[in-house]
Nucleic acid binder design. Sequence first.
DNA 1: GTCTCCGGTGACAACGTTGTCGCCAACGTT
DNA 2: AACGTTGGCGACAACGTTGTCACCGGAGAC
Lengths: 346, 346
Amino acid sequence: MARTDEPPDRRAPTIKDVALLAEVGIKTVSRVLNAEPGVRPETRDRVLKAVESLGYRRNTIASSIRRRDRRTASIGLVVEDLANPFASSVTRAIQDYAAARSHLVLVGSSDGDPARERTLVQEFGSRLVDGLIIVPSGADQSYLEYERAHGVPVVFVDRPGKRFKADAVVSENAEGTAAAVRHLAARGHERIAFLGDRQSVYTAAQRLAGFKSAMEALHGAADKRYIRTGLRDPRQARDAAVEVFGLDPAPTALVCGNNLAAIGAVHALQELGIRDRVACIAFDDVELADLLRPSLTVIAQDTAALGATAARLLFERLDEPGAPFRRTTVPVRLVPRESGEIPASA
Amino acid sequence: MARTDEPPDRRAPTIKDVALLAEVGIKTVSRVLNAEPGVRPETRDRVLKAVESLGYRRNTIASSIRRRDRRTASIGLVVEDLANPFASSVTRAIQDYAAARSHLVLVGSSDGDPARERTLVQEFGSRLVDGLIIVPSGADQSYLEYERAHGVPVVFVDRPGKRFKADAVVSENAEGTAAAVRHLAARGHERIAFLGDRQSVYTAAQRLAGFKSAMEALHGAADKRYIRTGLRDPRQARDAAVEVFGLDPAPTALVCGNNLAAIGAVHALQELGIRDRVACIAFDDVELADLLRPSLTVIAQDTAALGATAARLLFERLDEPGAPFRRTTVPVRLVPRESGEIPASA
DNA sequence: GTCTCCGGTGACAACGTTGTCGCCAACGTT
DNA sequence: AACGTTGGCGACAACGTTGTCACCGGAGAC
């Protein structure tokens, strides 16, 4: 007995259905849909009417498997953690750029795990993305040769990849911390502490390097006891800050290498009751930074530019695969608020 | 003359290449890849060796067009603005749930524009996503009937859809603001102000409703002069707060309907110099809320649960298309900090 | 020895689309 | 009148995969 309780037509209409209804060949439908020449206006109208009345929608992925360029009009993005405001802001900018070129974005979070990053890239690859934008983790992105060999270009964002040359966009990290140091020095600070992430993370290393070179230019050299790295979360940053400000003499100012360090550090200063006396500048702008007391001076990254540039580089690479690789930098901006203005004598 | 400067083999290897190398038929390769029974272990090994040596990777989308279930192992997600921490946090939770089932997530931002939402859904549809998770905007989601008719289930998150019945997960918005009111009332407050978004936004309406009913239960009714809605950004919220706290008698406490309103309101209280005297509870947790002085009491939404539940509902719907629709609610949590403890007499 | 059955396998169609090619009618040119 | 050209169009192959089916050889039943 025939089953009649099935939904009548689960399948979406295809060009075959359209062709049948419009009484033309399937190729003519394809021509109309792709705006190819060689179709009489009245035939075109018949096809469009059939498309309309069936609610036909092109099957992009079936089309892509047959098309010469194989493009799926989608790109893959790997960030460390999409829940992090830095990542989500960059992602949003990439989305907007991609949308303007009618592309969709597949997003995955690697959590800084190279294996997870690689898995995501493979999953993207098997979905035939046209290109990849990656915030690289780990010490080796050479596995990406496979993607490139098969026509999938890669752009790195936030950090350059390792063992794999490709287009990249990064912030001017070293310049940012250097500017922070100069800003503090101009307020009379000489004993400036630094709290940062693991040095294996590109941005963390760059920011410390900028800090050190600016300190050297001013005072000969930075005091190593005031520099703490390898801090992965606010808790570790807090503990490190408590230690550093327990030194004698204690620093009079503090530069934080990222927002997690900043959160921990402000907690520590609060607990120690010296939040009003120690100058503080943090990398990454944070929501509400201007509502803290004292409000927090930050080195803000231009996440919109970071994302938009990464997307631009990718699309330009798609348009011109043979062009030389480019590494672009995006300026950071010191946003002066109260915490950076506290003088050394406080 | 033949062009020899082309890359030697841009095309990724296919099962045909694998079959050739392993000296088997393509169907046997397919069997091995899909772990179908009926392949001798030694044949299997030959195939796997060939897969390995060619670096073969299954073309998921070619496979999906032929497969009976047509699944592409990808889902589409429409949020309002991915750069918003609420959205990115929910997205991250959905990603994780999807990844655990080997699914990828396509994400788009609607910016609250119903037309954009619809465009995104269509783009997702033409990429053959297996399902959709949507934060709906506008007054009519009935266009989703098309997707459902063609086998693409929909789950709403954060707000229910309008004119379209589907699974949905929302926060206990009304309970949240009601709890805030009760919390303030227990500290002696009777004149409590409310700042919120446009009432056409589901969550904003729910939160005001919870506020009003709790006020009625306590004091008979809320004073309408203390209630301001339609606030779209921190600037408008600030202005409204300045007006409300200029009234005589002024409110002694404030409930903010969302984080943007909270930011504006805290600015206003700061400017008016009454930040230490007016109690304040805000919907949505914000980074650094605990570092403000006074630290900000909030009604935190469980974004992780919201996202995970949405994903779970979607996958369960995929597994069982005929089941009755479910609307799930996720509890909110009042996080007591300093600003909620300020007594009415302050 | 013949027949049946079954595990293992491959040839081929099919998915929805685009690329290639050739057909037909209408037209202009010799 | 015969010929080439052109615009408009459709038949069919192909993309990389899975589904259907039939084939082959050997084991077991009679």
